[in-house]
Amino acid sequence: MASASDLRKGLKLDIDGEPWLITDFDFCKPGKGQALYRCKLKNMLTGTSMVKTYRSSDKGIEKANLEERDMYYSYQEGDFFVFSDAETYEEHRIPTKQLGNSVNFLIEDALCSVLLFHEKVIEVTLPIFIEKEIVETEPGARGDTATNVTKPAKIDNGYEIAVPIFLNIGDVVKIDTRTGQYVERVKKA
């Protein structure tokens, strides 16, 4: 249970059995009256937004009971990606569409952080950096070490990134999973 005065940006609430994140918050108190807490909320399951104003006297405000668990990515099975809990080894099947762009950076046995709400997966956070081998790109321009001139390159699952012009097929690169962008070369072919 929370009281209205605990409300603030970033707090997660359980409203009618669904998790909502407070994305915007303001306090107001008109004409010596009771305090109002205006919240803009985003549904963490569906992504829809709403505005809700709480009064200082409102009861029954519930914080969302969210659980963060470490899980290893195991394998892909059709439209699902299977993860296993690092502690209990319990398997969780997460639909491809919920992973979004992240699917391009999943590597077997990568340790991910999974946010759960009543056993339901809300968000999967990958390790910030992963390493991938380049499988397709134009031959590197020898001697050109400029990093600001780029060319397209594909990694093993076909995902395309922009890399400096001196890279070659077989080079292993570091990618930032938050942005999906090339960071540096870690191994030369």
Partner: peptide, 26 residues
Amino acid sequence: GEFEIILTEKVEPNLPKDRPVILKDY
């Protein structure tokens, strides 16, 4: 128990903004 909510969500946003406004006789 809705005086403040109605005041901030319905009354205040609709008060004229091109001149000073007085609300009186509370």
